[in-house]
């Protein structure tokens, strides 16, 4: 039987009104959590919001999120054949789903920049 990873993912645009969704992802040894999230977008639900740029190199540092309560880079955290809980960073402003405001404030666009 093929092994699967079970990703429980926090979804929502409001910290007080989110919900959890669970997806089964085919597991291959050596994959990253980001591989699993990208699989979900391609095969199940493209609306899942994640922030990443370099995909695998751990160069852009954009894919920070919480895995089982610990801050990780999704591109270097290994996918495992078990339930893994993924949440947005709890100490950053939520944008949507697993995406938070991680840029320095001066690099965020806002109404005052008009």
């Amino acid at each position: 039987m093929t092994e699967t990873a079970t990703l429980s993912i926090w979804r929502g645009a409001d910290k007080a009104a989110g919900h959890w969704e669970t997806h089964q992802v085919p597991f291959e040894r050596g994959q990253s959590v980001l591989d699993g999230l990208r699989w979900i977008r391609m095969h199940k639900d493209p609306t899942l919001a994640i922030r990443f740029s370099c995909i695998n190199a751990n160069a852009c540092k954009e894919c920070m999120m919480e895995l089982d309560g610990e801050t990780v880079y999704a591109c270097t955290a290994r996918l495992e054949p078990r339930e893994m809980r993924l949440e947005p960073l709890s100490n950053k402003k939520l944008v949507r789903d697993l995406v938070t405001e991680i840029a320095p404030p001066v690099e965020r666009f806002a109404a005052k920049d008009k």
């Binding site: 370099c54 190199a57 852009c60 954009e62 690099e107």
Partner: peptide
């Protein structure tokens, strides 16, 4: 200076 992701993090240079 704008970028579609973070400033000075994406693109090819950093790779």
């Amino acid at each position: 200076l704008l970028d579609r992701s973070l400033i000075g993090r994406g693109g090819a240079t950093v790779m």
